[in-house]
């Protein structure tokens, strides 16, 4: 089963875009004119790189351009995946409110797998300690109020693999 919906597909994504993604996915060059450096690597003009990046930012292929903090190194050593069972008809409205909390870094609705897995709303919470994560989870519980039909917090005890998402240079 896949989770791609037709409206998410961007047909305009072409080989030049792919080359730009491949050249920048591990990072932007730390030089005064980084887009020019990317352009030189691909063999197109800096203007074209910038125009295409603007377009990708606009259509959501690029979520944002900036720093990606390493939570663990920055002292946020506890990582709790909070999972919530909320009424399905309210999940979108509640998801937006939970996702807007400043300590929630990722928030998704996902299918239940009854009876083993009743939770349909996931909110990632980072904290300096487990107690801090639990305090933040309580804020979510208060926000959800009666819509919280059960929740759990799954702490990560070990990173088993972390390679990140990678696109190849050519398909």
């Amino acid at each position: 089963m896949n989770n791609i919906r037709p409206q998410d597909q961007v047909n305009a994504f072409d080989e030049i875009d792919r080359a730009i993604v491949a050249a920048t996915q591990s990072g932007l060059p730390l030089v005064a004119a980084p887009y020019e450096a990317v352009a030189a690597e691909i063999g197109i003009s800096a203007d074209e790189v910038m125009t295409r990046l603007q377009a990708m930012l606009k259509n959501g292929i690029i979520r944002r351009i900036g720093v990606v903090p390493n939570h663990y190194a920055l002292g946020l050593k506890a990582n709790g995946m909070s999972v919530w069972q909320v009424p399905e008809e309210q999940v979108n409205e509640l998801g937006k409110r939970v996702g807007a909390l400043d300590f929630v870094t990722h928030c998704y609705s996902r299918p239940q797998h009854l009876p083993d897995w009743p939770y349909n709303l996931f909110a990632m919470v980072h904290g300096k300690s487990r107690d801090e994560v639990f305090e933040k989870v309580q804020v979510i519980a208060d926000l959800l109020d009666d819509a919280d039909q059960g929740h759990d917090v799954l702490f990560s005890s070990k990173i088993l693999k972390k390679t990140g998402l990678r696109i190849s240079r050519s398909q």
Partner: peptide, 25 residues
Amino acid sequence: LLEDKMLSRFGPMYNSEKMGGAVTL
């Protein structure tokens, strides 16, 4: 900050699903 690993990365964050790919948990 990158060398000290305080940052995992600096640059564009891509949404692979919008490029036609798929992701699941």
